[in-house]
Computed example of a mutant assay.
Amino acid sequence: LFEIVEAVLECFIFHFLSAPTKIYANKDGNAAQLEYIRMELGEPDASGRRRPVPIEGSNTVMEVDNILSAIGQRADLSFMAKEAEEYRVETTKWSTFAANEQTLQTNVPFVFTSGDVFTGPQTVVKALGTGRRAARAIHLFVTGQEVTAPPSELLKPTPEALIPHITGVAEEPRAHMPELTIAERALNFREVELGLKPGQAERESRRCLQCGNVCFDQSAFDELFVEA
């Protein structure tokens, strides 16, 4: 959402539910026009997802200077084709490694996976989480133990605050990050966020981050877990 808001401020125009169909070149062979067709959401498929379908007669041509293809990310697993059959890790239709959700162990017993190559494009936090699970499973494997799922699992998100107030901790608003003005950043690739000043950074580090306060109420924390 942050990137979308910033793009709108910089006068980007979004064409949602639109699919490119043709690129027209000028006499020098460079891209000059892009044709796209508008889409609408069709009926739900077997999975319940409404897939986009073209709207007949909605083809539109726009003038362009450059075209950048950014239609998603996927892992490059082509190297697996060079592996011997017994060492070839199974993959999914999304070009990720197939593995046990809890242990991250693949069909090749000594190969474990984690991060985007397992989940697909995700957050850093998600990558760290799968990495921790994989590290635990790898430890079990290399020490000759049975590779099992973790003994407990977080069942629901930690509440924003299990204790409504902590004595001595005052609520403070987040420090505003200084940024280049729209005019300053419109025609260059300079870093937009200028960074907090030392005093701001120090105050920010003292703010309560609303982590859930589980360290103050162990009984409430225990209720979030059950034995597997």
Rank of each mutant, 00 (worst) to 15 (best):
M39F: 07
A135E: 13
E179V: 08
G57R: 15
A7K: 08
A186N: 14
I166L: 07
E184C: 12
P151R: 00
W94C: 08
V125M: 01
R207K: 10
N26A: 02
L34C: 11
R174H: 08
I163A: 03
Q145C: 01
G48E: 10
A201P: 04
R190N: 14
S47A: 15
E10S: 07
L34P: 04
C211S: 12
T167Q: 14
E3Q: 13
A19D: 03
S47F: 07
G57I: 13
P178A: 04
T148G: 05
P20I: 06
P151A: 10
G212F: 07
L1I: 03
I13V: 13
P20T: 04
E204V: 10
T106K: 05
G57N: 08
G129S: 09
A170W: 01
Q73R: 06
L34R: 05
A170K: 08
R38P: 05
G144T: 02
T130C: 06
Y36G: 12
H15D: 09
S58R: 04
P178K: 03
G120P: 00
R136M: 11
P52A: 03
S152W: 11
Q33R: 13
H139E: 12
A25Q: 00
G120T: 03
V53C: 04
I182S: 02
V53K: 06
T130N: 01
E40K: 13
S219H: 00
K126N: 02
E202C: 05
E90P: 00
H15S: 11
G42L: 03
A186H: 15
R207D: 06
R88T: 00
C215Q: 11
K22Q: 12
L104M: 08
R74G: 13
I182L: 02
R74E: 10
